[in-house]
């Protein structure tokens, strides 16, 4: 993915890292990543890493360690799921708000993606965009990111409620279920050991 440039006297980038085309394509896409991508990355890594760290915490007894690890796993699953659903939903709603529509009021789509009415967004936030002095391409990109920004801010407001009404109780419910599964598994193991 990354190729190291051989240093020579003719290049300005002495010992620099030169990113190949694949890495550049990824970075171009990453520039338009939304909070959904961010939440997904955090959730996946969190589910893999955090319970493992809790299970290796030798400072507490085994039962507390297990409760802690189960809670981390439950938090990662529930938090990521609701986070993605709420963010995705709010961003979609913002896209529809600024979507281009045909004469019948139907939303226009291009390759299944909602076509954004760039002029409508520019007019709404004109003073803000004009103050940044962006070139045409930068302005177009910034305008296309507006639904994602509005959707993410709206999602944060929605999540004040969902965190209390959905995340917290669901995490507790999931943790109870996981504990039940663990207890049954342990019971089966101990019964198996007795039979041997």
């Amino acid at each position: 993915m990354i190729t190291r440039i051989q240093s020579n006297n003719n290049t300005v980038n002495f010992g620099a890292l030169k990113l190949n085309k694949g890495a550049q394509n990824f970075l171009t896409k990453a520039d338009n990543f939304s909070s959904v991508h961010q939440r997904l990355a955090l959730g996946v890594f969190g589910l893999i890493v955090q319970p493992a760290i809790d299970l290796k915490n030798k400072e507490v007894d085994e039962d507390t360690r297990k409760v802690s690890a189960l809670r981390s796993a439950a938090k990662a699953i529930i938090g990521t799921t609701t986070g993605i659903i709420v963010r995705g939903g709010c961003i979609k709603a913002a896209e529809l708000k600024f979507a281009k529509r045909d004469s019948n009021g139907a939303v226009l789509k291009n390759a299944k993606k909602t076509v954004i009415d760039e002029n409508k967004i520019y007019k709404t936030f004109k003073k803000g965009f004009d103050s940044l002095k962006l070139d045409d391409k930068q302005l177009k990109e910034a305008i296309n990111r507006v639904p994602s920004v509005i959707g993410t801010i709206a999602a944060l407001c929605v999540m004040i409620a969902t965190n209390f009404l959905v995340d917290a109780p669901l995490t507790n419910k999931t943790m109870e279920k996981l504990e039940e599964i663990m207890a049954k598994k342990q019971q089966k193991e101990s019964e198996g050991a007795k039979n041997v």
């Binding site: 520039d31 338009n32 990543f33 909070s35 961010q38 955090l42 709404t124 936030f125 004109k126 003073k127 803000g128 965009f129 103050s131 940044l132 962006l134 930068q138 910034a142 305008i143 990111r145 507006v146 920004v149 509005i150 993410t152 801010i153 944060l156």
Partner: peptide, 21 residues
């Protein structure tokens, strides 16, 4: 103020994601 904030967030996606996280 709201227009400027919105435009800044839309222009600097990394900073926006950082703050909202």
């Amino acid at each position: 103020f709201a227009q400027k904030i919105m435009a800044k967030f839309a222009d600097d996606n990394a900073k926006f994601l950082f703050l909202t996280a």
